[in-house]
Amino acid sequence: MTAYDDLTALFINTSLKRSSEPSHTQALMDVAIAIMAKQGVRTSTIRAADLDIPPGVQPDMTEHGWDTDGWPAVQAQVMAADILVIGTPIWLGDKSSICTRVIERLYSWSGKLNDRDQSAYYGRVGGCIVTGNEDGIKHCAMNILYSLQHLGYVIPPQADAGWIGEAGPGPSYGDDGKVGLDNDFTQRNTTFMAWNLMHLARLLKDAGGVPAHGNQRTAWDRGERFDHPNPEYR
């Protein structure tokens, strides 16, 4: 059987609640965490609301007028992880404001390169967990997964999972210790997501990442065009 015990996964929960309060999003993320942990994947979780993360698209916002910035420590964990899963609640049909900020700060590293002259995020896989009691799972997932692949993450098939209750005020995932836990669609998708993230992370790690040809930034800047068909652009 394939081994996954040399992989690491980071889960960033962008709930509006700090870790002193229960999080419905965390309850569903914990399902994926348990599956990965059983395979020996080293998992860790960050509750973004616990941290002082200022807005901006620079790696360290203390260099741009802010007194403190909790993001550089998070970024170090991001770069140490083979798998990144972002969890968010749904508010007004969209991801949380904290989720938007996390993605903005991930973007702050978009100009950095790995030792193969590719985006620093190449060779990693991403997924997302979405919870709420209003419509918007697929909308949030499209936004988050597009953002991650744009930065350089590889997105496996079925890399999103979520749960929504009845539209309008009502119970959220995990309420009363049972809401949504018996929803086959949610539990199936969460399981498939966890395994597909592990499978693709395994493939990428064994392959040494994404092949380094046709995607090297400084080579393009030097004039290499990787078979680009327009001779006037060479």
Rank of each mutant, 00 (worst) to 15 (best):
T14I: 01
T14S: 04
T14W: 02
L16M: 07
R18Q: 13
S20F: 11
E21K: 11
E21G: 07
S23N: 08
T25N: 07
M29R: 00
V31Y: 12
A34F: 00
A34G: 03
M36A: 14
A37K: 12
K38Q: 15
Q39I: 04
G40E: 08
R42G: 01
R47A: 08
A48T: 01
D52G: 00
P54D: 12
P54C: 06
P55S: 10
G56T: 02
V57E: 11
V57K: 13
Q58F: 12
P59N: 13
D60C: 10
D60K: 09
T62G: 04
E63Q: 15
G65A: 11
W66Y: 14
T68G: 10
W71V: 00
A73H: 02
A73I: 02
Q75H: 10
Q75F: 03
Q75T: 04
Q75G: 04
A80K: 14
A80I: 01
T88C: 13
G93Y: 09
G93R: 14
K95I: 15
S97Y: 12
S97V: 03
S97C: 03
R101Q: 09
R101W: 01
I103T: 05
E104T: 02
S108P: 00
S108Q: 03
S110D: 05
G111W: 08
N114L: 07
R116T: 15
D117R: 11
S119D: 06
Y122A: 03
G123F: 00
V125H: 15
V125D: 08
G126R: 11
I129A: 07
T131P: 15
G132E: 15
N133C: 14
E134D: 12
C140K: 06
C140H: 08
M142E: 14
N143P: 05
I144W: 14
Y146T: 13
H150D: 07
Y153N: 10
